[in-house]
Design a protein around this nucleic acid. Structure first.
Length: 456
RNA sequence: GGCGCUAUCGUCUAGGGGUUAGGACGUCAGAUUCUCAAUCUGAAAACCCGGGUUCGAUUCCCGGUAGCGCUACCA
């Protein structure tokens, strides 16, 4: 790639993903240089050789001319391909025009024949030369074309297997033709099916996560992503195993179990796998917290729940909240968690449709009244004490289970559902003890406010 | 338009001339829980269509259809 920062990013993403290489632009190696831009002379040298051997020739056709011919072919219902006009040019004539300052591209002569190779996933594959025009090897600006550069590089770097997307199937004959022209042994080819989006069109930016950096930002673990991608087109010989360790993957994988049909990307399954890895992928509790902590802190500060300076102070609280997120396998979202802890509005709770009946219903009111008396003196509540108070309210009122806890949940959290109160109450209590720019209300405080709002 | 690739539950897939067509995600139901999740148990859910070959095709062959790709002085 042209810009250094793109290269750095690319390399870094690949490393994050867990892909390692023995040689490359960042490590050097026996076949350096590894950047296309630094291999110019090599490409030029081989192109000259090809011209000398009359396998290639200079082409002076203009882009407009080419485009016009293409349109003509299209209109006539023919496969559009280069006519081969400049093939007939005498070499001396071509040389004269170049010295005269005309720019020319270099094209390979395609001989009429069929190109056949044994594709490692598709099996025997044949493409007739009739559908391919003489491909450009070197563009008129001197840059090598993809189909040319890869052949030179792959051969010189002693590549044995070319494993790539099946959108390259139609490039393969052009490359094979080049190997033939050079008299080089071609590598083995394996063409993998395309990954499609959920709508079965080719995966692209608008489908969301398509770059490694994006998966990383979404907290996808590299190991989970590797495993998921492996499953897109390959299956374990037993037909059942889906979770594989790195060692199993490398040991079990073989190209002959790769299937040919295009697969559509299923984020839900990736997420499931990711949680499997999060739960049992060798990460300890601290490691799991680490995956989400940073993102959660960023959410809290950017939405002004916390000031940047306060983060240190509330570290324990944050971990407790991230823990809830973890416990529910991510179903408790950042925004819900933040709202639950930081935004409590008794007035709204007493009036909102879903929660109003708690403020108005006879049974909930009785339960809450009794409960508030029990804990009103408690400055620092523990879940234990909360539980005890609930128990004695149960004895007094005879209400239990849902009748007892639903009003408490609503009055305390302001929501009809959410994480266990056992997890939430310690957060409220600890939060209330800290003095924050945006204070967290204690359980007792919440109940007092609710009591006032509901006129208990 | 031409050429090519592909076709099993909604999705990823296993399988293969005779099977109750297997697994996983998701979905739904039940259990559990103060609730929602999580968890556990269970259920529904598929061989693209037409012809041929065959005693028998979802499986093999041909055709169609659909999806995707290529059709560049992009990679």
């Amino acid at each position: 790639r042209s810009e250094a920062r793109f290269e750095t990013q690319l390399l870094e993403d690949l490393h994050w993903f867990g892909l390692n290489w023995d040689e490359g632009p960042d490590k050097g190696g026996p076949f350096a240089p590894y950047r296309q831009s630094e291999r110019h002379e090599i490409y030029t040298k081989y192109a000259t050789q090809l011209i000398d051997q009359e396998h290639a020739y200079h082409c002076f056709c203009s882009a407009e001319q080419l485009e016009a011919e293409r349109q003509e072919d299209l209109k006539a219902g023919r496969q559009p391909k280069y006519s081969g006009r400049c093939r007939k040019l005498l070499r001396v004539e071509a040389a004269r025009r170049i010295t005269a300052g005309e720019s020319a591209s270099i094209r390979l002569k395609i001989k009429p024949s069929a190109f056949t190779w044994h594709d490692l996933v598709h099996g025997p594959t044949t493409i007739s030369s009739e559908v391919i025009g003489d491909p450009i090897l070197v563009r008129s600006d001197g840059h090598p074309a993809y189909n040319y550069a890869v052949v030179i590089d792959d051969h010189l770097m002693e590549i044995t297997h070319v494993i790539r997307g099946d959108d390259h199937i139609s490039n393969t004959p052009r490359q094979l033709a080049l190997y033939q022209a050079f008299g080089w042994e071609p590598p083995q080819f394996a063409h993998l099916s395309t990954i499609l989006g959920p709508d079965r069109t080719r995966l692209s930016k608008r489908h969301g996560a398509t770059s490694l950096a994006e998966f990383r930002a979404r907290h996808i673990l590299p190991a989970a992503l590797r495993n998921y991608l492996l499953l897109l087109g390959w299956s374990h010989p037993d037909g059942k195993t889906e979770k594989l360790s790195q060692q199993e993957m490398t040991a079990m994988f073989s190209l002959d179990r790769v299937n040919k049909s295009p697969a559509s990307f299923d984020m839900a399954k990736l997420e499931w796998l990711n949680w499997e890895y999060l739960a049992s992928g060798g990460l300890d509790h601290e490691g799991r917290l680490n995956v989400f902590r940073e993102g959660f802190i960023a959410y809290l500060t950017s939405n002004h729940y916390l000031e940047t300076g306060e983060v240190e102070k509330v570290a324990g609280l944050i971990d407790a909240m991230v823990d809830i997120h973890l416990d529910s396998k991510g179903r408790t979202r950042d925004e819900d968690l933040a709202r639950l802890v930081f935004d409590y509005n008794a007035q709204a709770v007493a009036q909102a449709g879903e929660t109003r009946d708690v403020a108005e219903g006879e049974i909930p009111r009785a339960v809450l009244k009794a409960f508030i008396i029990k804990i009103s003196g408690e400055d620092s509540l523990t879940y234990e004490k909360f539980r005890q108070a609930a128990k004695s309210v149960q004895q007094e009122t005879g209400k239990k289970g849902r009748d007892l806890f639903h009003p408490l949940r609503v009055a305390v959290t302001g929501a009809v559902s959410g994480p266990e109160l056992e997890k939430l109450i310690p957060i409220f209590e600890e939060g209330a003890r800290l003095s924050l720019a945006r204070p967290i209300k204690s359980t007792a405080q919440r109940l007092r406010e609710f009591s006032a709002a509901a006129g208990l």
